[in-house]
Design a protein around this nucleic acid. Structure first.
Lengths: 189, 189
DNA sequence: GCAATATTTGACCAGTGGTCAATTGATGAG
DNA sequence: CTCATCAATTGACCACTGGTCAAATATTGC
């Protein structure tokens, strides 16, 4: 009840992010409230606002790491012994896999509009797309049209944003995903 | 201030839908409140709950008409003197056009999850997709794989759900849309 | 030891979706 | 025409939300 907690149980930025993440992954952005997170942390909701400007900023902090996870995932897809064509399929498939196995995060990363996170999240999303585009091009023998790569991305995004909430995990949509990836590759080449 | 309005100014289901629609188209689902609509209608928010079970049901009522607009739009695309290939492009393009010129509606029609509208909206969306699939098939000379038609739809959906909120009207994304449609057709055939 | 500073609290604000007893208009039976 | 019934409307109320901020306390540096 004291207006300042003893040092051992002080609130960390990281501690908040951590608890926010678990709540958030379970319920999604809208369903999680600051008071909810505060209760989980055993502090008042006001305290969170000392560490984060608002809800949007907190959830961008959560999602920041996920952007680098996804970026690594994209980068890593050029590694390995398979031929480029397989690598390309895998890249597209893995994007979908990420999206469907991290639905709450994907929502903020690529779907949420209108909040103040936008500027930050939008920039990270752009960078992520650039990495995607580069990688796709590097896995193709012929020079791809830049706008076709964009269409491929949009088509992937369509898959994730449709199946999100409709399936719980990637596995449940794996067949459709594989087929969709083939569809996209046909359009790409 | 009287607990029942005089007959001439009684609240109609249609009247509510109408005002809800304008608010809704301007601001989107989340930003519109029942109290807001009530204020516009010059009644208390409680009155709306006499006519509609909840917010979701009201907004499904709004969007119900939009489903038939979109259905007609799809049906109409087989009419006209153009050859089937052009008709197909037009169909895809018009879907995007609808989506971007009716963003708030599209949101509820094809994007909102988790509310109780789901059962209703989901069904209407399925029917709409079936009409789409039929029409696409009827515009193709060769027998299309059913899953490819689905991928085409998903890819369209991706375009709309990306550009939604990012552009205001279809025009601003027309070029990209045309290119995306070509991309999809490549995958389809 | 004491003043300055960093944290935390919880009351508070304006707003939300939703419920419901109470009230009043319309309506139809006698 | 009257009066009970029923349909519609109100507004207080509930539990919630994101967000702000003065006050109170723990920590820190002097």
């Amino acid at each position: 009840m004291s207006p300042r907690k003893t040092a051992s149980q002080e609130l960390t930025r990281e501690l908040i992010i951590q608890k926010a993440r678990t709540q958030f992954v379970e319920k999604g952005f809208q369903q999680v409230s600051m008071r909810n997170i505060a209760k989980e942390l055993g502090c008042s909701h006001g305290a969170i606002y000392y560490h984060f400007k608002n809800k949007a900023e907190l959830f961008y902090a959560v999602v920041e790491d996920d952007f680098s996870i996804l970026n690594n995932l994209i980068e890593d897809s050029i590694q390995g012994p398979e031929d480029d064509s397989t690598k390309l399929s895998n890249l597209l498939l893995r994007f979908i896999e990420f999206g469907l196995n991290h639905q709450s995060q994907y929502e903020i990363m690529f779907m949420v509009r209108n909040t103040e996170v936008d500027s930050l999240s939008q920039e990270a999303a752009n960078l992520c797309y650039q990495k995607f585009a580069q990688t796709v091009q590097s896995l193709s023998t012929k020079q791809l049209k830049i706008i076709d790569v964009w269409s491929a991305f949009i088509a992937l995004h369509g898959f994730v944003s449709h199946y999100r909430g409709y399936v719980d995990r990637f596995d449940e949509a794996e067949l459709a995903a594989k087929s969709h990836v083939q569809f996209i590759i046909k359009g790409l080449l």
